[in-house]
Design a protein around this nucleic acid. Sequence first.
DNA 1: TTTTGAAGTCTCTCC
DNA 2: GACTTCAAAA
Length: 679
Amino acid sequence: MATRYNSRMSDLNPAQLAAATHGDGPLLIIAGAGTGKTRTLVHRVAHLIERGVPPERILLLTFTRRAAQEMLGRVERLVGKACHHVQGGTFHATAHRLLRRYGAAAGVPSDFTIMDQEDSQDLMHMARVQLGYGDKTKRFPKKETLHRVYSRHVNTDIPVGTILADEFPQFAEFLPDITRIFADYTARKGTRNLVDYDDLLLFWAGMLESSPEVAARIAALYDHLLVDEYQDTNLLQARILRGLCRNHTNVTVVGDDAQSVYSFRGASFRNILDFPQQFEGTSVVTLEQNYRSSQPILDTTNTLISRARERFTKVLWTTRTGGDRPWLVTARDEDEQTRFVVDRILELYEGGTPLREMAVLFRAGYMSAAIEIELTNRKIPFEKWGGLRFLEAAHVKDVLAFLRVLENPRDEVSWYRILLLLPGIGDLTARSAIAAMAQAAWESSSFARYRAPARAHAAHASLVTLLDTLRTGDTAQTVSGDIARVRKLYDDILRERYDQAEPRLADLDQLETIAGGYPSRSAFLSAIALEPPSNTHDLAVGDHEDEDVLVLSTAHSAKGKEWDAVFLIWAVDGWFPTTRAINDDAGLEEERRLMYVALTRARHHLAVSYPLQVYGSRRGADYSVDQLSRFLDRGVREKMERVVVGTPDQAPIMPAPPPIVPIDLRALMRERFGTAESR
DNA sequence: TTTTGAAGTCTCTCC
DNA sequence: GACTTCAAAA
């Protein structure tokens, strides 16, 4: 038994070995980028299993489902199929599983529906309108803002008033109104049997803190807890961990404060810094030897992150020698940038680097549009991670809404969405129908009994028929069968509503296919809310691991990954860092860490590019001259190789004299804070 | 009361 | 440059 695993352990360096074979008690692993963090965690799981810990009593919390699967796959290669029973997934998915099983005991009905972010915002909107904040006498926060404040409050425990004062001072005066809306929002979720993302965590923490019997049962499920990417967890998640540590303190967390990039959802690298205080007797292991990147790349990224205000000091080093310096590519404009990236990709490909070993990274999803077009033209296969998602498309959400009201007749958000689709029904009719159903305690035939106005008779009748068919066929029917039936009604509406119907109909075909893989409607609905397919390839059946496809990804979605060659595009001030963060120290620091994450993905080749001139309407201008990202300061640039493509001194092709737009600080301030200029 | 057209907003990151 | 929201017409 020990032989197999001992031989595997020889792959590890002393620090990794110490972490992997750590006994009981809390363990904090500070792991710099590319230092074999995953390898260490994988070996630790293997070690625990070999030591006799039952796999099903190990809980591995990761940032994405993909990360969990990848790790468990590697554990399997070490210890065999025993690891199949290791519990794993995201915090949210784990919370979901536990709530379905133990929620009832803690007062949470087990048949709830999960709302995604947009649903939550819609429900927030309903609360807002209901309470009479719809009229525009004064500037009042929109549903997105309301939801953001709410979510931050739940995840960080920061009082709503403080959040408003810090981040939305222009809305601070509305605190009492906002509090009322939040109260109504919460009540609505309760009566409609809806649960948002934050509730999943909140109820999990609640089960552990308020109900001793349930808490004991849940805490007794696991002997060892392991958490990956701990720098991206928030206070609520830390509370959950503490709650799980009733009977033992066998909790291992791994993270890198320099890679904390999710503060927008309440994460704080404080969690890492405070871990030793929260768990007494913590052992700390630091991993500093980098196995990923060449020395010149490391020199560049080390310099970049050395500018950070506050961090654990650790300098990554490698024994690898040689390698090219990263390129800093100045392109005349976006076209030149695109051409450079695609040409270089082909060059590397000709040289033997598979497409799968290359990635193009950017700050936000929409920045890859030009590259996508060019790749399509040149017939280079790619997949895109992050950015706008398939499931967020309006037509997909429409179809899902039908399934959701079947699953949860009290789902007000979905009812409203469906009703508005029907000809002859608008806002008012939809609300009155919903009110009638609420009156009838959401009894399933109450919609059929609703007396629709004359012009909506036909629509009402066909919807009643459809829902009846779907309800009665319940037992024998498949989820994709349900969707097919919904589409008999919906496809016509879709053609009516959208200009380019064809690609949208194709999306629905795909949805039908995915649904085929799920045993029940509720399993399907929960799964797609918690683990949405992250790229178009995930949607197709089967695995595509072996396919040779280039990756386009947001910097966020690239975290935890690595490639032989990495291209970071749009390294322009105002894009990366985004303008939103420029007046905010903490935001700027996070942007810097995000760029650090992006650049440290590269093993051998790294190119950072930025176009000098941008055409098109950005703040109303036809044209602007851009500056290199402030993060690539002189010290960083000295570690890089400068490359110029296009002819930058050539006069730009454009109408009229160049209306160069300086950043108007006053306008920005006015936008942020209303009228006052001082601050 | 719904629908349609036009002005206005605001750009992100993810479970 | 896309999507939402607001206002007028059917």
